[in-house]
Design a binder for these strands. Structure first.
Lengths: 206, 206
DNA sequence: TCACCCATGTAAAGTGTTACATGATTAG
DNA sequence: CTAATCATGTAACACTTTACATGGGTGA
């Protein structure tokens, strides 16, 4: 890529910062969506959710109380989840959260969003989290659609990465080149996974 | 995994939060190390660095000025980089940063750190960034050592992931299971990449 | 003169990390 | 009575995102 191309990209991004005026609805961080998705599966307490993050390979979210309890409070203040206090003989009271109708709507809206180039480049974990919840919230037909969009955009992106590699190859150290190749390889593996997953859904449908 | 195992893990993590008292040296965020590594390769201005993040597949760092300029200021305040102002006829003045001796030391110390289980689970991008800079800062022998440690820990971790998958498989939706499998697959691909990269370095050595 | 490029910054808001704090019950 | 488990929180600080602001130069 020439310098002109580089500048063009930087300009595009600069104007994106200037014009992308976010709308009235407050944004939800990825952790918030992870919590919404888990609460959609099953009403849970903050402690239950911490255990999930601590013991399963869920995305890589922090299980620290300083992340989860404030996030739950924000979701509750936004009216997306509600709490029921369980006063059980013996144990300390627990606060069990479940989704409100608005919470389900927010989750569905997030899942319905497009697969963007920006997601592909910087937020693959967002995309995988969305897919993980897709069956349970929007059904298998939606999951299949999502995978097809994912395949289309990723197929277009990978050749660009090879272009970068070829352009930069001469100026890099061995470890620098290998690191870049590792990134490309992981995208290629992902594309392969998408293709076999599409086949999995098509088999189920028949 | 039984409930006892789950609780044990949560406890371990809780005590990690309580005891890991960080030392006098201020911590540097990943972006800070990315900047140190790039400045080690070549003295650059904030604008140059933004262009790198905007136009190459570098990790997935933000190219926003609100991230980069404050990060450069922090590094400068910590004495890890210094600025030389270039007043060039024509263009606006630019501030070109380069590493101080302390900056080189901080970079080397970061690169020399161990490959931890926590890095493996939540911070693969840190590990890849460290490796990308390894050749240029500590030489190819260090890169090979790093890969061998990486291989050892990752080889031990992957079977655990399969264990999780088998334990959870029955209770998951199709998309949930596929998402988890995608994660495992990416670790397996990474391990394969590590092995071929080790061979690459061994060929160079001969 | 307008669009575009080069170049550097700041302010506000949101979020995450780290560390600390509390309280009740059960098993040994 | 002590450790471990269940369970919920807060405060300080650091960092990122988003948006805004500025200013000089070049080519059509």
């Amino acid at each position: 890529m020439g310098l002109a191309g580089a500048s063009r990209i930087l300009l595009d991004i600069t104007s994106r910062y200037d014009t992308l005026r976010t709308m009235s609805e407050r944004k939800i961080a990825l952790l918030g969506y992870a919590l919404l998705g888990l609460l959609h599966q099953k009403p849970s307490s903050g402690y239950d959710l911490r255990k999930i993050f601590a013991t399963t390979p869920m995305g890589g979210f922090s299980d620290s109380p300083g992340a989860i309890y404030p996030a739950l409070q924000r979701l509750q203040q936004s009216g997306l989840i509600r709490a029921r206090v369980e006063d059980r003989a013996g144990l300390r009271r627990r606060r069990v959260f479940s989704l409100s109708a608005a919470g389900v709507a927010a989750l569905e809206k997030w899942l319905a969003g497009p697969v963007t180039r920006n997601d592909l480049m910087r937020h693959i974990d967002d995309l995988m989290l969305r897919f993980a919840f897709m069956d349970g919230v929007k059904g298998q037909a939606a999951s299949l659609e999502f995978l097809k969009n994912f395949r289309k955009d990723l197929s277009a992106y990978i050749p660009e990465l090879h272009g970068h590699l070829n352009a930069l190859r001469e100026h890099m150290t061995v470890s620098g080149r290998l690191a870049l190749e590792s990134g490309i390889l992981s995208y290629e593996t992902l594309l392969h996974w998408i293709k076999t997953s599409i086949v999995t859904y098509q088999k189920i449908k028949r």
